[in-house]
């Protein structure tokens, strides 16, 4: 369903508990937790065990409740799109790639973050992981400076991904974030909106994969200006 510009105010509503500083506080915790999880992932680990480890870690940080499930994906499972079950029993190799995607709810505020990591030596995987983050910032800057709407942002992202030598997975195409639950306001993709998304209210998702479809990389964070990415 198309969403026209008159719906910007409707789709960008927030709940009674919404607070800028709380959203940013949760964002910081999410970014830190992603790296804590990544630090505990080692070659030889089975993906299911990594997910359990991540959930235990989130519980210890008072962020076990999530508006979506916890994803730690290894190797070929990095191709899987949001919500798709992983192929079972994938073991992280000595030279391999893995991604993390968490969406915790801390008290009344939602967080969401994703990143990709490489263990050992694999130049192409490392490039893919780096390019996911790089593309995130290219698209974010485009949003910041040119005011593109959701559709235009993902059309731009798709073209940029191709220039970099990757395919962009448009099934992961951004979404709202708010005080819990944002789904009560708008549960659709950012790619469907015809207006410029406002800062702090949307998450930009970038999921790229190689043309051979053997692995992918993911990066996501809130849409914010440069001052939040030092």
């Amino acid at each position: 369903m198309d969403v026209n510009i008159d719906q910007k105010s409707e789709l960008e509503q927030v709940g009674a508990a919404f607070a800028v500083e709380k959203m940013l506080f949760v964002r910081d915790r999410v970014r830190a937790t992603i790296h804590d999880i990544a630090a505990s992932v080692k070659p030889g680990m089975v993906e299911e065990d990594a997910v359990e480890m991540a959930k235990d870690l989130l519980a210890a940080k008072d962020m076990l409740k999530g508006w979506h499930d916890v994803y730690v994906r290894f190797g070929t499972n990095t191709l899987k799109t949001f919500g798709a079950p992983s192929d079972p029993g994938i073991v992280l190799g000595e030279n391999d790639i893995f991604l993390i995607d968490i969406g915790p709810v801390w008290k009344e505020w939602e967080g969401d973050g994703g990143d990709t990591f490489v263990v050992g030596e694999n130049a192409v995987m490392s490039q893919c992981a780096a390019d996911a983050k790089k593309l995130f910032h290219i698209v974010r800057k485009k949003w910041s400076t040119e005011g593109l709407n959701g559709k235009e942002l993902y059309a731009f992202a798709e073209a940029e991904a191709l220039k970099m030598g990757w395919e962009l997975n448009l099934d992961l195409s951004g979404h709202r974030l708010s005080d819990f639950p944002h789904a009560a306001i708008y549960d659709g993709p950012m790619m469907d909106v015809d207006f410029k998304p406002s800062p702090l209210l949307w998450v930009l998702e970038i999921h790229i994969r190689n043309h051979e479809r053997t692995f992918g990389a993911f990066y996501e964070d809130m849409l914010l200006d440069d001052s939040y990415f030092s």
Binding site: K65, G66, W67, H68, D69, G103, F180, P181
Partner: peptide, 13 residues
Amino acid sequence: INSVCGGQASCGT
């Protein structure tokens, strides 16, 4: 009845 996470035993709603 609420459900946010799509039956993943994540949101608790």
